[in-house]
Design a protein around this nucleic acid. Structure first.
Lengths: 228, 228
DNA sequence: ACAGAACCGAGAGCAGTGCTCTTGACAGTG
DNA sequence: CACTGTCAAGAGCACTGCTCTCGGTTCTGT
């Protein structure tokens, strides 16, 4: 790195990173909606207006943080993908996603919580956002190839609009039967619903702490999609 | 109604309701985090400081809105509980929850989205918040009594901490086997994960519009907990 | 019936916010 | 050297939640 030519460009790249770091610190303490450009600038010893040389608006800073968060989560999940036993790998990915979410609750809320009002996520975010689902699809595709994926007999084959919608997923994991693909979306939503409930305090009083519950759910969801 | 004694008390109750109505309108247009007391007061033709006679703080107003939202959702779900065929009723409840969420996305985000930074939900919210899960538990309890609930053979009986945590739920639905109770929490998280993904735009590009997917998931989750 | 207490809305004011615009200094390039 | 583009700074605008004080109204106990 630091292949930037001029001193100006290098300084600019460094300061951009410093701003994001300070923003992430603020994110962790006060949350996304209370993220203040002035507070960031104060921490960096500069004046608030100077930040606008680096990020055109608060929203643009948020977009950068969102993309970084998706990438960090994707990286954590991918690092847990051993390529070994499909069920073990599935559970390892689940655990990695949960660990990341618990370690970075505000960044998790930023990407999987309620959308920030007035903020429209640009198209740039969809690629980083799809890293985790793609990882799970890839796992299923490989499991199918090695005969470790059995289509549950009670899983109904999608028809109508649903069949049409699964086409997108079929293109990504052609060997995985459509019924399993629908179930993959179900467990995908389950995973993040479970995490949101845990992090946002919806489980307090019942399944909190959720370690055991999460472990049980991981296993049962692996079985639900047909992994064995 | 209007059994309030003095004119002052009646006026106060009415104005409190008007404030909440105006707040809900604002909620629907600009979202929870941009909810502004000054804007509400402007709409009501009064001065911002006057609102503090009715709600001690913005947080207190939010708490009132949160409780109202939980109650509205609970009421919608309970209205859909026919008491007839368990599977039909299960699916009807799911549909009612989704309909309410789609009709009131900002109120949904208020209760199931990321927590508002600096805001601590008081104990008062947990009773209204538990109406939907209690409804599902009651349904399962009745289904068990009428022999329409079969414990899925592959469902592992909880042990350790998990068994201990299910005690709370066993107290509410004593006839439902613990393995099914754990699965109930799984589908509970799945339901709201699915709704959050649909409302927060995470499904765009795949399962959106989610009508068919939602219908399929409702049915599969009913089967997953053992309803037949 | 009337005094005192309780309640009410209005207004000014504080400290904070995102964002814009202008100004003057500096670095990189011809 | 001169020019061009970039930079941080500062003032300012319109907004926020919240506090306090000020008079006026309404209720309540005697």
């Amino acid at each position: 790195m630091n292949a930037g030519r001029t001193a100006r460009e290098r300084a600019r790249a460094e300061l951009t990173e410093e701003i994001k770091t300070a923003a992430r610190e603020q994110l962790a303490t006060v949350g996304a909606e209370a993220l203040s450009l002035r507070a960031i600038s104060r921490e960096l010893g500069m004046v608030s207006s100077a930040l606008y040389r680096y990020f055109a608006s608060r929203d643009e800073l948020l977009t950068a943080l969102i993309i970084d968060a998706y990438d960090a989560l994707g990286e954590a999940a991918e690092a847990a993908a051993s390529g070994g036993d499909p069920v073990d790998e599935w559970i390892a990915i689940y655990a990695a996603v949960r660990d990341w979410a618990r370690a970075n609750p505000q960044e998790y809320a930023l990407i999987y919580g309620s959308p920030i009002s007035g903020y429209q996520a640009p198209q740039t975010t969809v690629q980083p956002a799809s890293r985790v689902p793609l990882l799970l699809l890839g796992l299923l595709q490989r499991a199918q190839a090695s005969g470790r994926l059995v289509t549950p007999p009670e899983a109904p084959a999608p028809s109508g609009v649903l069949a049409q919608q699964t086409e997108v997923l079929v293109a990504l994991a052609p060997d995985v039967p459509p019924a399993v693909l629908v179930r993959t979306v179900i467990v995908w939503t389950q995973l993040f619903g479970m995490l949101s409930f845990e992090l946002f305090g919806q489980l307090v009083g019942t399944m909190d702490p959720a370690d055991e519950f999460f472990a049980s759910a991981s296993r049962q969801m692996a079985a639900f999609v047909g992994l064995s």
